[in-house]
Simulated assay, not measured.
Amino acid sequence: MATFGLIGYPLSHSFSRGYFTEKFQQLGLDDTHKYLNFELTNINQFKKILDEYSDLVGCNVTIPHKRAIMAVLDEVDPVAERIGAVNTILVRDRRTYGYNTDYLGFRDDLVHRMAEQGFSFARGRAALILGTGGASLAVAEAFRSLGVPYTFVSRKPAVGQLSYGAVTAEVLATHTLLVNTTPLGMYPRVDAAPDINYELLGPAHFCYDLIYNPAETTFMQRARGAGAQAANGLGMLHQQAEASWAIWTGE
């Protein structure tokens, strides 16, 4: 039986397992395909998974192993190398290949959600990436592929980055895409949000939150309250899963 799985720790809630189990049923593959959760406290345990499941075709990777997994793979895709994180593994002939589909999921869903709400990637549009953690690197790669200039915003900005206090009306006049890559506002601390002046936002702005629980974050609520459009990260989750499936099946 073709085996797929999710690597992470802890895995108290697994979007991937439910998503792919349902997908297998819809495709009539539930008798020949299965999806398991692999809770690994140490990434070196991945070799044991490979030894135990000779029919392993591929895995998704979630926190806290997206970076560490790269060291135990045979090959890593150049884009994933540039991002510095792997969230999809292909196993073929006992060799392992690492990819990043987070940036594809974000890119494709962002374009779709903006089009739904009447936005386009017009010339001169630039982005602010709120946060500088691992997720921000996938977002930056997506903007690079779209030709959208971007600037990171951080509580402790490095050279070339902005502090939250430096997100002024002048900055927002040209940076009309804002993406929250921080965990601020994620359940259960739903009242939190990135510390920007939301009153400076307006109809020209589109605000995307990678968080999908809750479906309507405080970041989104405050953006919409100022007249901006907004979207959450649930579509990104679906899109990155489909990109993983395409890698595993070669479609």
Rank of each mutant, 00 (worst) to 15 (best):
N100W: 06
A142K: 06
S244E: 10
T151K: 13
Y103D: 15
L178Q: 03
E39I: 04
L110T: 07
A241E: 05
W248P: 00
R123H: 11
Y19W: 14
V111I: 15
E116S: 10
Q25L: 14
T41P: 02
D77I: 09
H13M: 05
Q239K: 13
A85Y: 11
N213Q: 08
H205R: 00
W245M: 03
G105V: 11
I43A: 12
P10I: 11
T168H: 13
S14I: 02
A126L: 01
E199F: 03
E199L: 09
I211D: 04
N180T: 00
K156W: 05
M220P: 01
V167H: 10
I43R: 06
N197E: 14
S136F: 07
L110F: 13
T151S: 09
P183W: 10
A226C: 09
L178M: 05
T151L: 13
M236H: 06
Y150I: 08
G133W: 04
M220H: 07
C207A: 14
Q240K: 11
S244D: 07
Y97P: 02
T249P: 00
Q25Y: 12
T168G: 14
D108T: 08
R113L: 12
G235P: 00
S136D: 06
D51C: 04
L104F: 15
A223P: 00
D55Q: 13
H65T: 08
M186G: 01
V148P: 00
A204W: 00
P194T: 06
Y164M: 11
K48T: 15
G124K: 02
V72D: 05
Y212T: 04
T218Q: 13
L130I: 07
A223F: 05
L40P: 01
I69G: 05
L40Y: 10
A122P: 00
H112Q: 14
N37H: 00
I49V: 15
Y103V: 12
N100L: 10
S16N: 03
H205S: 08
L27H: 11
G160F: 12
I247L: 14
A85L: 04
T101Q: 08
Y9I: 01
S16E: 04
R82K: 15
K48W: 08
R17H: 05
D74H: 09
V86T: 06
L137W: 10
G165I: 12
G202S: 13
E216A: 12
G131N: 04
L146V: 05
Y99L: 03
Y164L: 10
Y212H: 04
D74N: 14
A115F: 06
R113M: 11
E39D: 13
